[in-house]
Design a protein around this nucleic acid. Structure first.
Lengths: 339, 339
DNA sequence: TTGTACGCGTTATCAA
DNA sequence: TTGATAACGCGTACAA
């Protein structure tokens, strides 16, 4: 391995001069600098970032921690990957590398901070991780941290979230305005804060409009297509069917959409459908699936940016951001008003 | 920051004993070990992987390098993310972290190896990177390396690729068997090896069957929907339209599929369509889009596994793997044979 | 402008 | 079973 020493020897300077050159310190004679740079090229020298990090106690790296368990793969889930895309954009612009944690622990596990302690990651982006048990250490050790999909009072940590409640309200009010009163909801088995907010806002609007929401209209899905498929199958066999289905995620909505054909229901003629997320495939279906578009990429970008600012200024407070969402009523919603 | 020293002091041992405990060396008295472990918990001690890496000259990390440029985001592209999902699975199982390079260089740039030199990544996974200029250094420095989407004679490097030629052959022969003779092809502007193989195999089969493939039937797309949209628009206005379109990627096929409605062509009645990739959305369209399914997740897994083996055994030769693909003729192909 | 001494946290080697 | 010393490659502080 080529080190500063090797370069220094060949260039006829001390290794500290080499260090100065790679760090662009001013106090090196132009001619010396050029000579050193030439030798660096010749010897294919790269500074050892591990050693640099050991010195500086930082690694020019941001870690992304998913809250996944077991076999779940972060890249397979649109939610994560769209966030990561935003993180990546920021990190590209700022020449920071991204460390994907492959650690799988309980979402509330204190070990979520391990990349900071272990690898000297400059900051952590937590996706779907509950902050409660972590906040004390984050404060104490001043760990730059962004929580995505969670709310909280920021001291040091940053919180980013979509405006789930508003999005869900838009959906529900729109359906009601279009004559729907019997609305089914596909919730999730292990709901995240996001999912809970959506559901609560839905029931809230239903109540405001004095509409009944019977237990039989509430379904529990698995976030993915299958959850939607199961729901629509049950709905198909119901005596008094709802006229609309609101799904907490687009992928479950897609399951409804696809399975509807098999159970002899057509969308939106027999039943209306709305998802939540803004997954790109919604636009490609015929009819296009109504949904609420989240700016996940923007959230990822902001998460990285806020962390970066805290790295540069360790006194910086955390920030809370609620990202606006856009409700797209599309072809899967039918107006059934009788007037 | 808590170090071995701190633990050692509190536990009343020398720091080297602490090192032995965390590395599970045998020569520590059971009672001492327990005491040290307790203090480690108490003080929230984590070994500094940077220092460990500096010593061992490795970092328990695998780097993924995309060949993307500029603003392109690796997570946005299904191809990359499915590979990464496979890498992630292997790395989860083996407790290796993943480093995403945010470096954007020319695909043939020697700096693709920088993560190995800079960050002491134990191995590199190159996606869509041309190996030619890199092989010399890979040999010399014995860099564990897997190239995905490229072919080559492995010395040290591993090569993984889908059987693009076979897949493309299946498509073309199937179309011909179904009576298609006028077939358009949507190629790509800056084709990767994968894309070239597909195209070449297509023209090969056309020749074998003495079928004409005029220049006017060849289109150049951008890998994404838009490429397909542009192609179908041009095709719609052609005097002598092809009866089938083969797209080098699913996303371009999707563009064709979606835009066809707008230009008054229906699939497969007016024109048949086949993609290539195995993107999940193909199944959800009506009719389902015919495609060739690649095992990208498996390739990612294998890429990481081969690298790992070389890390453990630096004399291990590289391997070449061609992954079988599955052609799924689906609803977008119409049989137009006249018999 | 250039160089020397030291420390970052860890592990390997050798000695006790 | 345990400990002292050196080394990994680099950057800071200070000296020349």
């Amino acid at each position: 391995m080529t080190t500063q020493k090797d370069v220094a020897k060949k260039a006829g300077v001390s290794f500290i001069t080499v260090s100065r050159v790679i760090n662009n310190k001013g106090n090196v004679k132009q001619k010396t600098r050029e000579r050193v740079l030439r030798v660096i090229k010749e010897l294919n020298y790269y500074p050892n970032t591990l050693a640099q990090g050991l010195n500086a106690n930082k690694s020019n790296t941001i870690s992304i921690l998913p809250s996944l368990r077991d076999q779940a793969m972060m890249e397979e889930i649109s939610f994560y990957r769209r966030i990561i895309a935003g993180v990546e954009r920021y990190c590209c612009e700022n020449e920071i590398d991204i460390l994907l944690s492959t650690f799988r622990g309980r979402p509330d596990n204190i070990d979520c901070l391990r990349h900071y302690y272990l690898r000297k990651s400059d900051g952590l982006i937590m996706i779907g991780v509950s902050p409660t048990e972590l906040l004390e250490k984050i404060e104490r050790d001043k760990i730059p941290c962004s929580f995505i999909g969670e709310t909280g009072c920021p001291e040091r940590a940053n919180f980013l979230q979509s405006d789930n409640r508003w999005g869900s309200r838009q959906i529900t009010e729109y359906l009601i305005k279009n004559g729907h009163t019997k609305i089914a909801y596909i919730f999730a088995e292990n709901p995240s804060t996001d999912i809970i907010d959506r559901y609560e806002s839905f029931t809230e609007v239903m109540k405001e409009n004095n509409l009944d929401f019977p237990d039989s209209y509430l379904f529990y899905g698995d976030f993915m297509e299958n959850g939607g498929r199961e729901a629509i199958r049950k709905i198909a066999s119901m005596r008094e069917r709802p006229t609309a289905i609101v799904s907490a995620t687009d992928r479950m909505a897609l399951g409804v959409f696809d399975e509807a054909k098999n159970v002899g229901l057509s969308i939106p003629e027999d039943i209306s459908l709305v998802g939540f997320d803004g997954h790109e495939f919604c636009e490609f279906m015929t009819p296009q699936i109504a949904t609420v578009i989240q700016d996940l990429e923007g959230m990822g970008y902001m998460a990285a940016k806020l962390i970066s600012e805290q790295i540069d200024n360790s006194d910086k407070q955390g920030e809370s951001h609620i990202f606006p969402v856009v409700f797209e009523p599309r072809g899967t919603i039918r107006n059934i008003r009788e007037d």
